[in-house]
Design a protein around this nucleic acid. Structure first.
Lengths: 325, 325
DNA sequence: CCCCATTACGTAGCACGTAACAATG
DNA sequence: CATTGTTACGTGCTACGTAATGGGG
């Protein structure tokens, strides 16, 4: 049994049992992969893949069991490399962050600037995606951490830690009738078509439930993931915008008005999402502390050891500023 | 990084940083091991061993961190081999049992006979040792399970499950004055020198505390691990024996008398000890169920997942016969 | 002076690549 | 017929063994 054989196995499964695709991904020849798999099967005395003709159609039960162990072993091999790096060159490496457009644009820039000043030799990789993609990237160790606002239920295997909170504002063109409404109400907002985040009105979303609780069914004119896109359509008069207050820049967005909706609409929590088993370089802890000072290395490690969301919540309650809870 | 390099690393540490001894143990050449370690260190970019001259004197911090991961990886490699065997040849393999002399002689024979009839192609390896050795053997995956009576505190990293209970009897030669004592009391027993198990009167032992509670300090004439040795010295008149009631065989031991001490002396619990992470072949679960019918595969797996002694106790309370608790 | 790790060097084995082949849809 | 896995074969790398070298206690 060799680590490469296990790597081949895992990659084949990742590529939906396509050996050629796995070989290509690993920059090696397809016959080589094929042969190593056969050799592994021969050594173990069990077929790992169910074949129909020459096609791989499924994992055998034995294959599934072996796969689980193999994945863990490869993760640990990676951990060894990472921690060795951490001893050899503590201030060199990569920091992979998966996050949403809004965070990347309005929250992270100062944090990343500070981090880069402290660790100029660490390359920061910023990946954006849908909440599901963020979860996948983090879970499969493609990034060190994710920063997201979404429903914790989307991240069942990750450890979530509160970073900060934000609230919605209502954005409309200068002179829009909504800007006169005093006081601003949900009812008044819902009289206009809305322009907001694509995920904001999901079945279990906080925003959707907020309107539903008031018996209001607002009309959505357009949804997008990207705040700058939303603003563009608000400018075009497609509807009024519902987005993070931080997205409004008074100096640039002079043609728009931001109405405070902090008391009307639910406050959202920004989460840091971590894979509990992944080894984190020392500078990753530094970044996290920079992002949210209450998330010290000790707190993060303890939370990762706990795993259970409720226990983590209890832990955080003792360390985080009240505003975050 | 190769699995063999990790194996070399682990073995060197096991052999107290002696490369030559590790090489001998792994049936390979010493320069080969030495070179692979250097190569691993070079690949990782960190020294794993602290050297004084050419001698290895300690692990570096990096070495300790790598070692922990390496041990886990090797354990999983072993798991893969074992589970593959379980699919390939479910009724062939080895069953390693570490246990005390008494269990091996008086409790296990019928269980092992039944097991052997069911799995004739599984070789049973019976290892005896002191309680500490049993714990070590189990913890280092040298055996599948241990069966022991000792203090649970000796097995902090193992999962302990109650198998059965036994009680002491007092053994003396026919015609001994103690045999006339009616009723039998601790005081009466302590008037004679005792012959009993070496571990039975340890500082925290149940037996020692039982006498101490009554304010009695019995005199120990001889202790041994082996019941047959104890009986021999009882026959020689060295003292009266305190041992498991099961050790008295009415047909063979016609020159001895066994006095029931079930109400006088503490009842002892026999434990099954398992390493929580070790993969157990299907027949191991079968053996366990044979040994203690209430320890089904489901119960065992759940207990191994729980790990926490108190939680296991609660689990057992719902499934085990009352006599065991 | 013995024990132990490192260096030097030769060899056998094997992982991998290229090319040809077979099977499936 | 295109895609995909297997067989065949050659080669370059490297893990390992033997022998010689160097350091510490």
């Amino acid at each position: 049994m060799k680590l490469q054989q296990l790597r081949y196995l895992v990659e084949i499964v990742r590529r939906d049992l396509n050996v050629s695709a796995a070989a290509a991904r690993l920059f090696t020849s397809q016959p080589g992969v094929s042969k190593q798999i056969r050799q592994l099967e021969h050594e173990l005395g069990v077929e790992l893949f169910q074949r129909r003709g020459k096609q791989f159609v499924a994992l055998t039960p034995a294959g599934r069991a072996v796969l689980a162990q193999a994945e863990d072993m490869l993760a640990r091999a990676d951990t060894i490399r990472q921690l060795a790096q951490d001893f050899a060159a503590p201030d060199r490496g990569e920091l992979g962050i998966a996050t949403t457009h809004t965070q990347a644009n309005y929250v992270l820039p100062p944090v990343i600037a500070a981090f880069n000043a402290r660790y100029p030799r660490v390359r920061v990789d910023l990946l954006q995606g849908t909440p599901q993609q963020l979860a996948d990237l983090t879970q499969h160790d493609q990034v060190d951490l994710a920063i997201t606002t979404e429903d914790p239920a989307l991240y069942p295997h990750l450890v979530l830690l509160p970073v900060s909170t934000w609230h919605y504002c209502v954005l409309c063109p200068v002179g829009h009738t909504l800007a006169q409404a005093q006081p601003l109400t949900l009812q008044a907002i819902a009289e206009h078509p809305l322009v907001t985040y694509g995920f904001a009105f999901g079945a279990r979303s906080a925003l959707g439930m907020c309107f539903a609780a008031a018996g209001i069914r607002p009309q959505l004119a357009l949804t997008a993931v990207d705040t700058s896109v939303l603003k563009r359509y608000v400018r075009q008069g497609l509807g009024v915008g519902l987005m993070a207050a931080a997205a409004y820049d008074a100096e640039v967005d002079t043609d728009l008005v931001a109405l405070d909706a902090a008391t009307l609409l639910p406050r959202r929590r920004v989460h840091l999402a971590l894979a509990p088993g992944r080894f984190l370089r020392a500078y990753v802890y530094d970044f996290i502390a920079q992002l949210a000072p209450h998330l010290t290395r000790d707190v993060v490690d303890e939370a990762r050891a706990l795993r259970d969301p409720q226990a983590i919540e209890a832990l955080i309650a003792t360390t985080a500023p009240a505003a975050m809870i």
